[in-house]
């Protein structure tokens, strides 16, 4: 690969990222908001990450 080709790749990548940044600024970051909501709700409702997994209340040995 020549040095010129390397800069070309950098240029294209930066252009794509710039487009991505513009997108981020316009559109609501739904996934990040969901993570933030989960952290706050776990705190307010005192849900520990362990307690979230479905409980199996069946005693061991029950048919």
């Amino acid at each position: 690969m020549t040095g010129r080709a390397g800069w070309k790749i950098v240029g294209v990548t930066l252009a794509c990222m710039l487009a991505g940044c513009v997108t981020i600024n316009i559109y609501f970051p739904a996934a990040a908001a969901e993570r933030a909501a989960d952290r706050i709700i776990d705190e307010v409702w005192q849900l520990k990450p362990d307690a979230v997994k479905p409980k199996t209340d069946k005693p061991a040995g029950t048919p």
Partner: peptide, 25 residues
Amino acid sequence: ALRAALLVLLLAVAGFAAAQANLEI
């Protein structure tokens, strides 16, 4: 030149990832 190009790319990717990461709470 190639090394410099890679460094620029790496820094850009790091910045991009940081911008996407989390909402401030």
